[in-house]
């Protein structure tokens, strides 16, 4: 799992590459939590276009950050273009909580 973090104004853009499962979820969670706190971010964009695998542990990580940022009036968006990841996002009901965009640019624009 590779995590690349970028900050734009008060929006954290997290590009995740590799496999997001229970094993890698802990690291992702800690890195995001740390960045959100130290950089005082209010919005978060999950760029999932580099993922080769995701299961329900990934859904847990996304919902966890969503609850955190929603509590401070922020927004969470997902960028995803992979069929297998989209299937999971849709069936878990995430699309009812946050927007899924086709590109990071679009996600930033729609914040």
């Amino acid at each position: 799992m590779k995590i690349q973090l970028k900050l734009k104004d008060r929006t954290l853009i997290a590009k995740l590459s590799g496999e997001l499962d229970h094993h890698s979820a802990k690291t992702v969670k800690e890195m995001l939590e740390n960045a959100i706190e130290t950089k005082a971010c209010v919005n978060l964009i999950f760029d999932l276009t580099g993922l080769t695998f995701m299961d329900s542990s990934g859904i847990g990580v996304i919902i966890g950050r969503y609850k955190l940022l929603q509590g401070i009036g922020g927004k969470v968006k997902i960028v995803s273009d992979k069929q297998s990841v989209n299937k999971l996002i849709t069936m878990s009901g995430l699309t009812r909580l946050m927007e899924v965009c086709e590109s990071v640019e679009q996600a930033i624009m729609n914040l």
């Binding site: 299961d55 329900s56 847990g60 990580v61 919902i63 966890g64 999971l88 878990s92």
Partner: peptide, 13 residues
Amino acid sequence: SERSGMGFTVMET
């Protein structure tokens, strides 16, 4: 512990 409770639903689907 931040679990979504979707594991069995994923297996079924």
